[in-house]
Design a protein around this nucleic acid. Structure first.
Length: 675
DNA sequence: AGGAGAGTAAACACCT
DNA sequence: AAGGTGTTTACTCTCC
């Protein structure tokens, strides 16, 4: 999608350039342009001073227009300097003529970008759309009015040419256009407000030192401002500086907008790289400014005296120190941007999953003809958090798809070669089957874990971090008679774990295999048939399973139970298998999601310090996840090959090929996507 | 490097 | 005959 915008960009860019020299666009352009182009023809035999005056105005207009174009071109050029901005910048550049003719509050491409970059709630989207529509409507009206004015002006010009000078009429026109100018100003203000609100909502991000995406249209839709300037030229004596000043002011409108919400450069978390890809501009200038305006000292990234930037948790005495910290520690760099990108992926993934789960729930309810969330055995989203699966299956199911998932085709090609601690999907991804499992023999009481996080496992497609043997044993032990048929074991698996509702052929085979393989499972002939029981002695005899892998994980698990609930392991496993970068702040979007994200983030990062997690202040309701404690997570340097460009808004979620939960649980003929 | 545990795949036999 | 159940083998991966 970014690519689309990218191409648009190009075309737009060229359009601009052409537009400045050729008349193509001018011709399409409506009144003003026509006025100019037309004006040149009849102007020949105009001897009248006022007519010359009008011509002067038009020339001035042209000059101003060129100025504007130059500015735009300069922007482009400067944009080229920092490769990051290429994509976006041009995408936003709309030929002046186009800008005049079409409502350009925010271009569709921009909207698309926004939508891609930010995961918005439907409500937010709706509001946005409404605002957008309203603005567009207004702009259209203004444009119509503008056209009329231009026609009138032209008409009057012609009249003047024929009938001679009529200062009064000119005055009249001037007055009319003044009024029009005011409307344009209003329009601009509206746009500003709109943009500002967008910013506040976190929908737009403005990069420091450059006109950001959202502002572009303003700049370009600057025709009104241009007119203002011209009008000043026309109606009153003014110096060229003023003209340029005006130009500036028009631009300032945008920059003002920016600066108002993003006081400090560093506060803009946006990454240059991001825009490179034209993919991401997450993060939150708005969040920085907003708190000050509305809730002084409340900040999504700040809570309980701790910086809640993913993986940070630096203690900040007060809000001011937090701001300092934010600006210094989380400035624009690869790490921050990568974190943002990852965060966005997480959110995307979660939302995608949420959508799927909702759909599934709907289907279930429809199927069962129930209205309430009733299903017993069937998984139901109990709450936002638990209903959000981690789509582990996505990755685990199709390992081969992973390598390319994170880096979508649209993803930037600029890999993050640095940023040691940047966690990316790829860095977490483990190819092939996950063999790190542990039984309840080691620090992790499977029974308590399962009981504790039952709902989570039921709803999240997270592979339980236990071996098949442990799970089978658990299933059997949970049964009243400590014995189960194979089918009952199957049922237990599917009932207890969302994960085992997929790829049935695979795991069922594994279950059978384990039952047969391990001596601890004893087959007993029963009246009904054969049932399986557990020989505890044999089970305990089994060679101790080591928790391998991440040393920190081991350390955590061994050293502190408190910090290492099975859930953590589950999460970690799922994250690893999922290639889901659970690396987030609670600041984005849905609080519940944020909570989940926050909790997961801790899983990944907070481990080290894992003092006390206070990330959940913004989150209502706790979930199993929240009970989770930080676990150390592998932080490996990015593989340059796999690493995505910073902040590339990857659409991994959309790519998870097998993340189709609507599949038949039982018959998964294929493992093509599985491990 | 090699052993062991674990997961996966598959072939095969038996039973219902 | 088809499908479920159970056994076994082979292979791979990961960890020690």
């Amino acid at each position: 999608m970014m690519q689309e915008s990218g191409t648009e960009t190009k075309s737009n860019g060229s359009a601009i350039q052409n537009g400045s020299s050729s008349g193509n666009h001018l011709l399409e352009c409506g009144g003003l342009r026509e006025g100019r182009s037309n004006g040149e023809t009849p102007a020949v035999d105009v001897g009248a001073a006022d007519l010359a005056h009008v011509q002067q105005q038009q020339q001035a207009l042209q000059v101003a227009r060129q100025l504007l174009l130059q500015q735009q071109q300069q922007q482009q050029v400067s944009g080229l300097k920092s490769p990051k901005r290429n994509d976006k910048q041009p995408a936003l550049q709309v030929p002046v003529s186009v800008a005049m003719m079409t409502p350009q509050v925010i271009t569709p491409q921009q909207m698309q970008q926004i939508l891609q970059q930010q995961v918005l709630s439907p409500q937010q989207l709706q509001v946005l759309l409404q605002q957008q529509q309203a603005l567009m409507l207004q702009q259209q009206q203004l444009q119509e009015f503008y056209k009329k004015q231009q026609e009138q002006l032209q008409l009057q010009l012609l009249q003047q040419q024929h009938a001679g000078k009529q200062p009064k009429e000119q005055q009249q026109v001037a007055t009319q256009q003044l009024a029009f100018q005011q409307q344009l100003l209003q329009m601009q203000q509206l746009q500003q407000q709109h943009l500002l609100s967008l910013q506040r909502q976190g929908l737009l991000t403005i990069q420091p030192g450059q006109p950001a995406l959202p502002l572009q249209p303003l700049t370009q839709g600057m025709i009104p401002a241009e007119l203002q300037q011209l009008w000043k030229e026309v109606t009153s004596a003014h110096t060229p500086e003023e003209a340029t000043g005006n130009n500036h002011s028009s631009l300032d409108l945008t920059t003002t907008c920016v600066s108002s919400s993003a006081p400090s450069k560093t506060s803009l978390i946006m990454n240059p790289h991001a825009s490179t890809n034209g993919q991401l501009s997450v993060h939150t200038p708005k969040r920085e400014s907003l708190p000050n305006e509305e809730h002084p000292h409340s900040h999504p990234l700040y809570g309980h005296g701790v910086c809640k930037w993913p993986g940070c948790e630096a203690v900040c005495e007060d809000f001011q120190s937090f701001l300092k910290h934010l600006n210094s520690e989380h400035a624009l760099d690869d790490r921050s941007t990568a974190q943002c990108r990852v965060q966005m992926q997480v959110v995307q993934q979660l939302e995608l999953q949420l959508a799927k789960d909702k759909e599934r729930l709907q289907a279930m309810m429809t199927h069962l003809h129930v209205k309430s969330t009733e299903p017993k055995t069937a998984p139901q989203p109990l709450n936002l958090v638990s209903s959000v699966t981690l789509s582990k299956s996505a990755s685990e199911a199709s390992p081969q798809s992973l390598p390319h998932t994170p880096t979508t085709p649209t993803a930037p090609i600029t890999p993050v070669t640095q940023g040691p601690s940047v966690i990316t999907t790829t860095s977490m991804h483990t190819v092939g089957p996950i063999r790190r499992r542990y039984s309840d023999k080691y620090n992790v009481p499977i029974s308590s874990d399962i009981a504790q996080n039952q709902e989570f496992y039921k709803n999240a497609e997270v592979r339980p971090p236990f071996t098949y043997a442990s799970l089978i044993r658990q299933a059997i032990l949970e049964s009243p008679e400590k014995q189960l048929t194979l089918n009952e074991i199957y049922n237990w698996f599917t009932r207890m774990f969302a994960y085992f509702r997929r790829n049935a052929a695979t795991w069922k085979n594994a279950v059978r295999h384990n039952l047969s393989l391990h001596k601890c499972f004893v087959r007993v002939e029963n009246v009904k048939g054969a049932v399986w029981t557990v020989d505890e002695v044999e089970f305990q005899k089994r060679r101790p399973q080591k928790i391998s892998g991440n040393p920190s994980l081991i350390k955590n698990m061994q050293s502190s139970h408190a910090y290492c609930t099975p859930l953590n392991a589950a999460l970690q496993a799922s994250m690893a298998e999922n290639s889901i970068p659970l690396y987030t702040t609670a600041s984005m979007g849905n609080p519940s999601l944020g909570t989940l994200a926050s909790a997961m983030r801790e899983e990944l990062n907070g481990a080290m310090e894992h003092t006390n997690s206070n990330e959940s202040d913004s989150s209502p309701g706790r979930s199993p996840l929240q009970a989770a404690h930080p676990v150390h997570v592998k932080e490996e340097p990015l593989d340059p090959e796999e690493a995505e460009g910073p902040l590339s808004l990857v659409t991994t979620a959309n790519h998870s090929p097998d993340f189709d939960q609507d599949r038949d649980y039982e018959d998964e003929p294929v493992n093509e996507d599985m491990e």
